[in-house]
Nucleic acid binder design. Structure first.
Lengths: 190, 190
DNA sequence: ATTTGTAGTATCGACTCGATACTACTAGGC
DNA sequence: GCCTAGTAGTATCGAGTCGATACTACAAAT
C-alpha cells in the first residue's frame, strides 16, 4: 500500500475544504453548512427545493435543516413560498443576495486556483471522483442527487423543445433539466 | 464544461463523508471533528502530537482545539504528558480505547467498501487527489502535513538503520519516519 | 532582566445538531 | 364521507463546536 492512501487524501481534502468554507463564510457570518445549503438551493429543481430535500442532501435531521433555513431566511439569503397543491410543502429559493454570496464563495478561491492549475490531471480527477461517487451510491448509501437530464425518468418529447419527467408526468423546461433532483435515478446500464 | 464538475464532486464527497462520520461517531457520542482528531493523533510524530498541531491540521483556532481535546481526554480516548524540554508543550497520544475507536471508524465502512470496489479506478484516483493536494499547497494555503519519510529534511544515515531530521538534528526510528509531521517540506523537484 | 513570542487554558455568545414533541396537511382505506 | 397513517415542517432543549478575547506559563532573544 502506498502512502498516503486515497482515503487519506480524501479526508485531508475534505478537512481543507471545510476550513476554507469556514474562513470564507466568516466574512458573511455564515457557517460551512450555510454555504452548502446556498449552493444546493441554487441548483435544486422544483422537486428538490424544500427543507426535507436540503436535510436529505446534507445528511441532517429535518429539525436541524429547518433551523439553519430559518436563519438563512432571517438574513435575507433565502426566500420561501408555499406549494400550490400540497399545503405542507414550502419551496425555497435564493434571493439576489443569496445568489451573490453563493457565487462568491463556491468554489472557494483556493480550490478554484488549484483546480485551474491541475492541467492534464483535471480529466482523470473528474472521472475517478465520479466513479467513487457511483460506488458509494451502490454501497447502499445515499440518493444520487444527480442532474435531471441524466435521470432514467427524463423523457425528451417529440417536439425537441419539451422534456417530461416520467415519475411525476410533469413537463420540464430545458433549464430545469440541468438542475439537481432528489428523485434522480441512474439509467439501467446498456 | 461537463456536469458535474470536479469541484461539485469533491464537495459532494466531502458532505457524504461528514454525514458518515456523524452517523458513525454517534455510536460513541463523538462529533466528526473528534474522529479526525483521533485519526490525526494516531499518525502524528513527536513534533506534531500537540494541541497546536491539531489546531493547525484541522484549520481551527487553538482555543477550539483545546476544548475538543479536553473532552477527548475526559472520555479516556486521549492521554497527555508534558514535554521533557519545553514546559509549555504537551504531547498527546491515543489510549487503547482511542486506538480502538480510531480503527473502527476510519475509513468509514461505506467508504471502505466503495474504495475497495473501485478496481482500476483506484490508482488514478490516488494520483489525481495527490496532484490536487499539492496544487492546493502551492496555492499558498496550508502546510503539507506529509509523512516524515518524504520530507526534504529527512536524512538517511550511513548505518542503514538510522534516520535523522535535518531540521531538529534529532535521530528518528524507522517507524517514526512513517508518521505525519507538521514541519514537512516537499523536496525541491529534480 | 526585560521584552517579545509561543503553548495552552478559560470563558462567553452564536450556532449546529440530534432527539423529542408538536401542528398541519395529505393520502389511503373503509 | 370519515378515520388512520404517513409526510412536511416547526419549536424546544441540551451537548458540543467554534471564534474571539483574555489570561497564565514558559522560552528565546535582545
Amino acid at each position: 500500500m502506498t502512502y498516503p492512501t486515497p482515503y487519506d487524501l480524501l479526508e485531508r481534502l475534505a478537512t481543507l475544504l471545510l476550513a476554507e468554507e469556514r474562513r470564507l463564510g466568516g466574512e458573511w457570518a455564515l457557517q460551512p453548512v450555510h454555504l452548502r445549503v446556498l449552493r444546493f438551493l441554487g441548483r435544486a429543481n422544483r422537486y428538490s427545493d424544500t427543507p426535507a430535500a436540503v436535510a436529505e442532501y446534507l445528511g441532517l435531521g429535518k429539525g436541524t435543516a429547518s433551523q439553519s433555513l430559518i436563519l438563512l431566511q432571517e438574513k435575507g439569503l433565502v426566500g420561501a413560498h408555499p406549494d400550490a397543491k400540497d399545503g405542507r410543502k414550502r419551496h425555497l429559493s435564493l434571493t439576489a443576495l443569496g445568489r451573490k454570496v453563493a457565487r462568491r464563495t463556491t468554489p472557494p478561491p483556493l480550490f478554484r486556483d488549484a483546480l485551474d492549475r491541475l492541467g492534464e490531471h483535471t480529466e482523470p480527477l473528474g472521472a475517478s471522483l465520479l466513479a467513487l461517487l457511483k460506488a458509494l451510491q451502490d454501497s447502499g448509501g445515499s440518493r444520487a442527487f444527480g442532474v435531471c437530464e441524466t435521470c432514467a425518468h427524463c423523457e425528451h418529447s417529440e417536439g425537441e423543445r419539451s422534456f417530461r419527467c416520467g415519475l411525476t408526468g410533469e413537463r420540464l423546461k430545458l433549464r430545469e433539466t440541468q438542475l439537481i433532483c432528489r428523485e434522480h435515478t441512474d439509467p439501467a446500464p446498456g
